[in-house]
Design a protein around this nucleic acid. Structure first.
Length: 424
RNA sequence: GGAGAGCUGUCCGAGUGGUCGAAGGAGCACGAUUGGAAAUCGUGUGUGCGGUAAAAACUGUACCGAGGGUUCGAAUCCCUCGCUCUCCGCCA
């Protein structure tokens, strides 16, 4: 959510900056009227309330002195009715204003490249050597089914499409990656480990920006106002919702393993095979809450922490700075990490690292006090996948495949795989 | 799922219709005292929104789990919901 005062005082500039996102901004123009309307009503209502408070004191005094207060009571009854009318009008205006404010995307940071499509994303760096196989490489779903370590068919029977059973060393590989990533971030990168709830309520989904605009992308629990979390970002960022943190507690660094659930509405027909696009997948997430002046440096560090996973796994990747059109609703700046996928002969997204500045913090009410006496300020929130585990499994299968259809285990994972060096 | 108890400021805790943003205590901050500390004493100690473009100050208003209602007036009475605790049932 943007600062109302910013919008009030610099409307034209903000609108200009939002234009680069390429979203429809016609609703935005209603802001001025709603905002002014709201303030007028507040003034009216509060003046009447001040009167009522004043006269009520007099009534109390009169009664104590056993004098007649009937006239004032009648007068205040009328004032009370008017307050009720104004307040209900005010509530309507505020509701409209809330809906509007919650649907305005974040302002891109000045370092975010301006662009119109995903083709305008800017490659920042590349790492690693793309493998050059002297045999015909296979897609991970073919490898995995031959090795009997993934079972898509039975998952379709048991649940439906875009679900999977991991089996044997496939399941072991997923679990090894989870432990490897969590250990790395907790022990080496200084994050506090968390296992969050997989379901979250509506307020949390609104706090991090999934709602109200993207409800169709989420799985909703029938008869409950709960959603399956699409990412651990939601529970972990909301962990400190409506709190005022102490300045010296910052930065807060959390790493969380969780299942993630996405309905991926509108992506039917894309990546229908394999692990790339599932309704349920596992992910290790990095979340930070920091002081505003630190957030851009922290974005670089956090992205580096995600990259470290790929480097240790020796998977070739590149880093893209997402342009204004491809930023997502909540981010001011975002880097995508893309891992090389031999079956696609291209790089595929495996991590997204974003700085939301105070956009989520304002929605979720996450603030801090620099010291005892200073006013609360909004923190800046950041997060990044460190990494999406299913896609990492796919990348390992494809990049580490051998001529006979077996898969070499990346060296750092061997201890996590019960010292097995190959899946065959 | 059933029965009961509770939810007040950073914390503990008082408050059952008016003088309550809320007693008292603890904590914290500042000051006095001290060679220094402890103890003691004094002062202060929330947030949102509005008046106001920003900051400071001032001022109004709202906030005692959440939302409604009754009333001239609600922390206090009524209704709905959420959460916590205890007992029973069920269960991993």
């Amino acid at each position: 959510m943007l600062d109302r005062k910013l919008l009030r005082n610099h409307f034209a500039e903000v609108k200009e900056q939002l234009k680069h996102r390429g979203e429809d901004l016609t609703d935005l123009d209603r802001f001025g009227e709603l905002d002014e309307n709201r303030r007028t009503l507040i003034v009216e209502s509060e003046q009447l309330k001040a009167t009522r408070n004043e006269v009520s004191k007099q009534i109390s005094q009169l009664k104590k002195e056993k004098q007649d207060a009937e006239e004032k009571i009648l007068e205040m009854r009328e004032v009370g009715d008017r307050i009720k009318m104004i307040d209900s009008e005010l509530r309507e205006v505020e509701e409209k204003l809330d809906v509007l404010m919650l649907s305005i995307p974040n302002i891109p940071h000045e370092s975010t490249p301006v662009g119109e499509t995903e083709d305008d994303n800017v490659e920042i760096r590349k790492w690693g050597e793309v493998p050059n196989f002297d045999f015909e490489e296979q897609a991970h779903w073919d490898l995995a089914v031959s090795l009997d370590i993934l079972d898509f068919e039975r998952a379709a029977k048991v649940t439906g499409s875009r679900f999977v059973f991991y089996k044997g060393l496939g399941a072991r590989l997923e679990r090894a990656l989870m432990n490897f990533m969590m250990d790395l971030h907790a022990d080496e990168h200084g994050y506090q480990e968390m296992l969050p709830p997989y379901m979250v309520n509506r307020t949390s989904m609104t706090g991090t920006g999934q709602l109200p605009k993207f409800e169709e992308d989420a799985f909703k629990i029938e008869d409950w106002d709960y959603f399956l979390a699409p990412t651990a970002e939601v529970p972990v960022t909301n962990y400190h919702r409506d709190e005022i943190l102490k300045g010296d507690e910052l930065p807060k660094k959390f790493t969380a393993f969780s299942g993630c659930f996405r309905s991926e509405a509108g992506s039917a027909g894309r990546d229908t095979r394999g692990l790339i696009r599932q309704h349920q997948f596992n992910k290790v997430e990095l979340v930070q809450m920091v002081k505003p002046e630190d957030s851009y440096q922290v974005l670089e560090e956090l992205t580096g922490h995600a990259e470290k996973v790929l480097q240790l796994l020796e998977l070739p990747y590149r880093v893209l700075s997402m342009c204004t059109a491809d930023l997502g609703f909540t981010a001011a700046k975002k880097y995508d990490l893309e891992v090389w996928m031999p079956s696609n002969e291209t790089y595929r997204e495996i991590s997204s690292c974003s700085n939301f500045e105070d956009f989520q913090a304002r929605r979720a009410g996450i603030r801090f006090r620099r010291d005892e006496k200073s006013k609360p300020e909004f923190v800046h929130t950041l997060n990044g996948s460190g990494l999406a585990i299913g896609r990492t499994v796919a990348a390992i299968m494809e990049n580490y495949q051998q001529a006979d259809g077996s898969i070499k285990v990346p060296e750092v994972l061997v201890p996590y795989m019960g010292n097995k060096t190959e899946i065959r």
